[in-house]
Design a binder for these strands. Structure first.
Lengths: 134, 134
DNA sequence: ATAATTGCAAATTTTTTGCAGGTTC
DNA sequence: GAACCTGCAAAAAATTTGCAATTAT
């Protein structure tokens, strides 16, 4: 969990408005969260914050490398703070998403001839531990 | 490229309508294709085929394991025929998607403790060979 | 013959846009 | 003070639904 959303925004050329810090906080706390879920959360504290503002800022923050889209099979995309390379474990029972390091061996084994790789998106779908124990 | 969409449908408990075989053919030929693109293609031959029918069938064919959604950052989802495990090379310049085998070493290196893995979705974003040569 | 499927139009949901007033730096 | 942001309402785009007519098996 990050503390300083103001600095995060400003160091990426975005003005630090209350709306933006609230959205970032919501994303950071949840880990991975959709537009609707952000709206539900954020409107507790800021009832006037509009969905349009969330959409505009989601786009802007992606362009400015503050957040990243996480598209998921069968669901609306979620968003996360930009962070180091990692993969997602997506539980098909409870829907939670966990981050995991991508082991160096995996990165090596994914290298492809004749393709200039920029980023790897790895999502593993299955059943998380707590859902297995039920 | 598959020849027999009728058998494919019937062996998955779906009636073989012209609409469905047309949609499947369009997906198969394109490799990866969005709902809109399917609509554009299919309406050449079947001008009355409606978007509603495409949506209904995309859902149905996913449920019956005939096709698979491919969610992509910053774009509408595409769909592909269900096939053996593979990963996607997504060109950020021209947008094309290529299939590639996932090497066994990569599969091993992706195994995670305490997670019952059902399927791995791997998308590599970068620049394809022909876009590098320009 | 039966149950399922289609196409249309309408409804719903999701996302985008324009602009007046307010805010950040 | 200038440039940028927000919130609203309205528009546009995407997806779903209900139902009468048609089609697959």
């Amino acid at each position: 969990m990050i503390k300083n959303y103001i600095t995060l925004l400003q160091s990426n050329d975005l003005k630090a408005t209350i709306q933006r810090t609230s959205i970032l906080k919501s994303i950071d706390q949840a880990g991975h969260i959709s537009v609707d879920e952000i709206y539900e959360e954020v409107k507790e504290l800021h009832p006037t914050l509009s969905l349009a503002t969330i959409y505009k800022n989601i786009t802007l923050m992606q362009e400015n490398n503050v957040i990243v889209e996480v598209p998921i099979n069968g669901q609306k995309s979620k968003y996360e703070l930009k962070k180091d390379d990692h993969m997602h474990l997506i539980c098909q029972v409870c829907g939670t998403i966990q981050d995991r390091e991508i082991r160096p061996e995996a990165k090596e084994a994914l290298v492809v001839e004749n393709f200039q790789l920029n980023s790897s998106k790895i999502n593993l779908y299955g059943v998380c531990q707590s859902c297995q124990n039920r």
